[in-house]
Design a protein around this nucleic acid. Structure first.
Lengths: 161, 161
DNA sequence: TTGACCCCCATTGACGCCCATGATAACCCA
DNA sequence: TGGGTTATCATGGGCGTCAATGGGGGTCAA
């Protein structure tokens, strides 16, 4: 599996350390990134995190905007300026800065949520609420799509060959 | 046979393990997926499960949406975030997390239902009820259609063992 | 010197790995 | 064809390993 998947909730210890879920660590390592790239997610009380894959996504996003434009400067500032590269200790734990913790409202526990090419860090309670909303949206979306994406066609008939 | 077919009901042991039906295992192996990819089915008390084929479908579904959109993050969270990659032990058994068991109402037994390119996990009683309903729907449909596409005859019986 | 951070070790519980049992179905041979 | 044998699969349980967590203490820098 080459994607961040599933959710895990871990505790911050007295020193402010949290274990990054083992499966996320192995994926980051496979991605060739030593540590975790983290920044405050735009518009929501969560942190976006990932490895090289995420960094590249961000780079290409910024580069899509016209050079020297206001927009580009703002986006660069928001993404690059607030980013941090966190190193993990021997046990795979990281420390979140005050700023990062404040943005997500994290105090003593963190929920790690896999989103494919990246993952997010949430304060557990807020995540529950958010996830409810996400699921509701998806149900809507499913109905709207009605016509099912190509890969799904032909499934219901079920009787193979 | 390159499809998940038929229905099997297996028991969870004291450790919470269930055997994945042997025929499903061989199919997963053929698909090159080590383990089982599982997530709560949308809108119904069951779990969707499968291998690479299912994963591909989810990936393409997510990738249809514009990157960085709110919509995409929601979908990713609902699909990837709720998914789990379950590894099987030497005997082909998996363990379902509390979250997954809760969604499907599974306690001590699980019904595996082949659906072609994927399969579902149900609490046995709920599956029976569901199946009744499905048969009724098919009868309706039959009347509406007048005639049924040739491939479909005889499939629904499928209650294993 | 003090505090922040890093490296190392200990603990605990969950999970993976391995072997045993029983039951059923496929198989073989006289 | 009948009886016994083997293979396959679901199931149970012991035990080692690893992940998550907790804490000591060294090191570097302000």
């Amino acid at each position: 599996m080459d994607r961040f998947v599933s959710t895990f909730t871990n505790r911050l210890d007295a020193k402010g350390r949290v274990s990054v879920p083992a499966s996320f660590r192995t994926l980051l390592a496979k991605d060739g990134f030593d540590g975790v790239y983290v920044y405050p997610a735009l518009g929501i009380p969560a942190l976006d995190a990932g490895g090289n894959r995420l960094v590249e996504e961000i780079n290409s996003l910024v580069e899509q905007l016209p050079p020297y434009s206001e927009e580009r400067d703002h986006l660069s500032a928001a993404l690059y300026g607030d980013s941090e590269v966190l190193r993990a200790d021997g046990e795979g734990r990281i420390m979140l800065s005050d700023r990062l913790r404040a943005h997500a409202g994290i105090t003593d526990r963190v929920t790690f949520v896999g989103l494919g090419y990246k993952f997010q860090l949430w304060e557990p309670e807020q995540f529950v609420a958010r996830q409810e909303e996400a699921r509701a949206r998806v149900r809507e979306l499913k109905q709207l799509l009605g016509s099912v994406p190509s890969g799904m066609a032909g499934q219901s008939s079920g009787v193979g060959e």
